[in-house]
């Protein structure tokens, strides 16, 4: 029962509440880094990694430090600073100890600090009143949903780059319209996940 609940949270985050396509979080990298498949995948893996790490750090801070001392209103300031510091730390550690990983993910890490998907997932975990395990599964699912959207969309973009769109729709507008169609497709998952878990 408990594991079923965790699975439900994770799958909902991947398909139903997809961060990019349904919640509109992390649109900048979605439009900016989705031109090539390998870049899209690299960016998404870095996002999954930082989402998990940020949740693992910010959830205990909120629960054991801010809430008992009635400092809940400092959430925004504390979270953004913790995430910024954490990303720096991870970059330094990766550079020193795992240079191969740093070469492939390192360039995406600084971009992630000001990515609204990361701050969004940490704040949403608190707002939804998830416990630690639920929060971690939600973060992993959200990151996985981001990965799925990025990889799918990079495939679509290769086609739209070369299609014969009306002149004023060339470039960004046609990209957004095709994202709208992908978002509409993802809406179909809503019923699937709910009926799968009998909710």
């Amino acid at each position: 029962m408990d594991f079923k609940n965790l699975l439900f949270i994770m799958l909902s985050a991947v398909f139903v509440n997809n961060y990019v396509l349904q919640r509109f979080l992390g649109i900048c990298p979605f439009l900016g880094v989705s031109k090539k498949l390998d870049q899209a995948a690299g960016m998404s893996i870095a996002v999954i990694f930082v989402m998990l790490l940020a949740t693992a750090v910010t959830w205990p801070i909120q629960t054991y430090l801010l809430d008992p001392n009635n400092l809940g209103y400092l959430q925004t300031i504390v979270f953004i600073l913790v995430i910024a510091a954490l990303v720096q730390l991870v970059e330094i550690v990766l550079k020193r100890y795992i240079p191969a990983l740093h070469r492939s993910l390192g360039i995406y890490l600084p971009l992630i600090t000001t990515n609204c998907a990361i701050l969004g997932v940490t704040v949403l975990n608190i707002q939804e009143k998830y416990n630690f395990a639920e929060a971690m599964f939600n973060s992993f699912g959200s990151g996985l949903g981001f990965f799925l959207a990025m990889v799918l969309f990079s495939g679509i973009r290769i086609r739209t780059e070369h299609c014969d769109a009306p002149k004023s729709f060339k470039g960004l507008p046609i990209t957004l319209v095709s994202a709208a169609i992908l978002a509409a497709a993802f809406q179909g998952f809503g019923g699937v996940i709910n009926s799968l878990f009998g909710r």
Binding site: L31, G32, P166, F169
Partner: peptide, 27 residues
């Protein structure tokens, strides 16, 4: 959201006769 936003940007491109370039998007 995506659709209306895309159409508005296309409208701006039409009205400015393509002077506004969106070569690079997002980041």
């Amino acid at each position: 959201g995506f659709f209306v936003f895309g159409c508005l940007i296309a409208l701006v491109a039409k009205l400015t006769h393509g002077r506004v370039k969106h070569e690079d998007t997002g980041c």
